[in-house]
């Protein structure tokens, strides 16, 4: 019983310690983020590279995924909803599924899988190779130089990729609805415009921004948690991605709830 209590106490201390560390990390990132916009910005190159990798290089994957999902949603909508006399809801379903839900969350998943692992792995490798210490020794704050540009880069990329996902998702829906249901382009655009509200677009943008922040912070945090051994790098990368996925789903549920309140 004593052993059990000791273990429980040790585990509680460890978990509490890691929460405190994560909170301290987030506060320092916020502080350096403010300084980034008002101070010198030698990290602009890192920011550019991050947007290039996270945003530009993910375009092809996002395009294929969103075109296919848009097509699937419209096919299901066009075939199922008329059976219940709700054909008019097809476009509403399309907006809800593509714009409000799938756009932000799937973009978040793709970025977490691609860039989240890359960030955690890269920073972990830098820790093991003492490159982070080399930054500190040179007088460069690693949070300012490595974390802040990644935070901005990933957030901007997720937001832009979400817009891109929406455009391609809705286009994919049109490409399928035209040959299958004979929907003309003008009719499609008019119907979509009637149900798509500014609120939907803002909600989608907010979600993607929050997801971007989560992915960047979690990935950087786990990358920097690597201590000495290269075997810790894949472990932390896996933890980063799985934690990103869980957080994205939970936060998405919370934000959707707030949307309907």
């Amino acid at each position: 019983m004593t052993v059990l209590l000791e273990r429980l106490g040790a585990r509680t201390r460890r978990v509490a310690g890691s929460f405190v560390y994560a909170a301290g990390f987030a506060i320092e990132v916020a502080r350096q983020l403010v300084l980034f916009f008002f101070g010198k910005r030698p990290a602009l190159r890192v920011l550019t590279l991050q947007i290039l990798f996270t945003g530009v290089e993910a375009l092809a994957v996002i395009a294929v995924l969103s075109l296919s999902l848009g097509a699937v949603v419209i096919i299901q909508g066009l075939s199922l909803l008329p059976q219940f006399g709700q054909a008019a809801l097809t476009y509403t379903v399309l907006v809800v599924v593509i714009t409000r839900e799938l756009g932000p969350i799937l973009t978040g998943f793709i970025v977490a899988a691609r860039s989240g692992t890359a960030i955690a792995t890269e920073l972990g490798t830098m820790v093991v190779n003492r490159e982070i210490e080399a930054y500190i020794a040179t007088g460069v704050n690693p949070i300012a130089y490595l974390v802040v540009p990644r935070l901005i880069g990933v957030t901007v990329s997720v937001m832009l990729l979400n817009v891109y996902f929406n455009v391609f998702g809705l286009a994919g829906a049109f490409f399928v609805s035209r040959p299958t249901a004979g929907v003309a382009l003008w009719e499609y655009v008019t119907q979509l415009g009637a149900v798509l509200q500014v609120r939907d677009l803002l909600g989608s943008a907010l979600k993607s921004a929050v997801f971007g922040v989560i992915i960047a912070l979690v990935s950087c945090h786990h990358g920097l948690l690597v201590e000495q051994s290269s075997t810790e790098i894949p472990q932390q990368a896996i933890r980063a991605v799985s934690r990103c996925f869980v957080l994205l789903i939970v936060v998405n549920a919370g934000l959707t709830l707030v949307y309907y309140l």
């Binding site: 830098m126 190779n129 003492r130 490159e131 210490e133 080399a134």
Partner: peptide, 8 residues
Amino acid sequence: FQHGALWQ
């Protein structure tokens, strides 16, 4: 640094 620690 012992092993250089150059930024790769």
